[in-house]
């Protein structure tokens, strides 16, 4: 299934085996260039925090989320620090710019190392 980046462009990327959520910290992933985290289901959000922890600890490689992320959660995934997220072929056909950036502002600061997001005054 396709992986897309924050602009919605499909991207090919060789993926390493998935890292378990409990191992998703910089001690265990070290300087791996790519880390893959799994969403177990359409309402599972553990990987959002796992990604946030990695970014917060300074992980600077490519973070990939696979599994049923869903087009309505893409924006969350990119905001917590994922670079690439998996979607289905059908979702790719349905994808519109509004799914990638539904909000003009955010209340939360951006995770380390990612594009600055505006926050409430």
């Amino acid at each position: 299934m396709p992986l897309i980046d924050v602009s919605g462009s499909p991207t090919s990327q060789a993926l390493p085996p998935a890292t378990g959520i409990t191992e998703a910290n910089t001690t265990s992933v070290g300087h791996a260039p790519v880390v893959t985290l799994v969403f177990d289901g359409p309402t599972d959000g553990k990987a959002f925090s796992a990604a946030a922890v990695l970014r917060s600890e300074g992980y600077a490689g490519t973070l990939v989320g696979i599994g049923p992320v869903g087009i309505d959660r893409l924006t969350q995934g990119f905001r917590v620090g994922f670079d690439l997220l998996e979607i289905t072929d059908t979702e790719l056909q349905q994808l519109k710019p509004c799914h990638l950036a539904p909000f003009p502002h955010h209340y939360q600061p951006n995770p380390n190392g990612h594009p600055a997001l505006k926050k409430s005054a």
Binding site: G45, T75, Q76, Y107
Partner: peptide
């Protein structure tokens, strides 16, 4: 309210 609204990390607890 502001911090938790549409918090990307905590919308699928």
């Amino acid at each position: 309210r502001q911090w938790s609204t549409l918090h990307p990390e905590f919308a699928s607890l």
